[in-house]
C-alpha cells in the first residue's frame, strides 16, 4: 500500500477508546452489558440508573435487535430523561455492532460525550445474543455478561467468550432457582472453573436493592479507571 505522504502524514489515531478527549478532559467511563435474550440486561440498566443517577451523570445506549423496545421501556420507566437514552440499529447482527464494526455505537456514546456535560458513565446494552457475543475494547472499558438461572444451570459450564472473559459475570433471577430446579452451587463452581479469579455475582433484580453488588462493582471500576487515566 502506498501510505508515504512524507511531510503531512499525521499520526495514526484509533478514534475510539482513548480515555482523554481532544481537549485533554476525561470522557465518560463506558460499561457494556451483554448476554442472552431476556436474561435481565434492561432490568439491570434500569436498576443501575435508579441507583446511580443521584450520584453520577448517566446515559444509556441500547442495541435493540428489531424494535426500540429496550429504549422505550427505559423511557417509559423514566429512569433517565429522554436525551440520555438512545437506540442503535444493528442490521440483524447485534454482535457485529458491539464487536466487529462498532462505528454506530461509538457515534452514540461520543454524541453523549459531546452533548452532556458533565457525563460520568455510559451504559451500552447489547441486543440479546448468544454466548459468544462480547464487546470490543474499542467500545467499552469494562463489560458485564448477564445470564439467568432459568435458561439452564449448565450455561456456566458451556462457557464461551462472554462467560469466560467478561469482566463481571452476573447470574440473574436467583429468585426463580427453586421453581426451575437450578442448582446455584453448581453454577457458581462451573463459573469459577471457567473464569478463575474473575468475579461472579448472583442477583435477583426483583428484590429490593438487588442491583447493589453490580452498582458497587461499576463505581469501583470507575474510580480506579479515573485514577489511572489521571496518572
Amino acid at each position: 500500500m502506498h501510505l508515504d505522504h512524507p511531510v503531512t502524514m499525521p499520526h495514526r489515531h484509533t478514534y475510539s477508546a482513548e480515555p482523554l478527549r481532544a481537549d485533554g478532559s476525561l470522557r465518560a467511563f463506558r460499561v457494556g452489558l451483554g448476554g442472552p435474550v431476556g436474561s435481565g440486561k434492561t432490568a439491570s440498566v434500569a436498576a443501575l440508573c435508579r441507583t446511580l443517577r443521584d450520584r453520577l451523570s448517566l446515559a444509556v445506549v441500547t442495541n435493540d435487535i428489531y424494535t426500540r423496545e429496550d429504549a422505550e421501556f427505559l423511557l417509559r420507566e423514566a429512569v433517565l430523561p429522554p436525551e440520555r437514552i438512545t437506540a442503535v440499529e444493528t442490521g440483524a447482527c447485534p454482535h457485529t455492532a458491539i464487536r466487529d464494526d462498532i462505528s454506530a455505537n461509538l457515534e452514540a456514546v461520543e454524541h453523549f460525550d459531546q452533548t452532556l456535560d458533565p457525563l460520568d458513565l455510559v451504559l451500552v446494552e447489547s441486543g440479546g445474543d448468544n454466548l459468544t457475543a462480547t464487546f470490543s475494547k474499542g467500545l467499552v472499558d469494562v463489560q458485564i455478561f448477564v445470564i439467568d438461572v432459568s435458561s439452564g444451570d449448565d450455561i456456566p459450564r458451556k462457557g464461551g467468550p462472554g462467560i469466560t472473559n467478561a469482566d463481571l459475570l452476573v447470574v440473574n433471577k436467583t429468585d426463580l432457582a427453586p421453581h426451575v430446579g437450578a442448582d446455584l452451587a453448581t453454577m457458581a463452581a462451573d463459573a469459577e472453573r471457567q473464569r478463575g479469579a474473575l468475579p461472579v455475582v448472583f442477583t435477583s433484580l426483583t428484590s429490593d436493592d438487588g442491583i447493589r453488588e453490580i452498582a458497587d462493582w461499576i463505581t469501583g471500576h470507575l474510580t480506579r479507571w479515573r485514577a489511572k487515566a489521571a496518572a
Binding site: H5, P10, H11, R12, H13, S103, E107
Partner: peptide, 18 residues
C-alpha cells in the same frame, strides 16, 4: 452523511491522511 462520518473514522484509522 451518517455513513460518511463512520467511513471517515475507519478511513482515518486505516489510511491516515491530511
Amino acid at each position: 452523511r451518517k455513513l460518511g462520518r463512520q467511513m471517515m473514522r475507519a478511513a482515518r484509522a486505516t489510511f491516515p491522511s491530511a
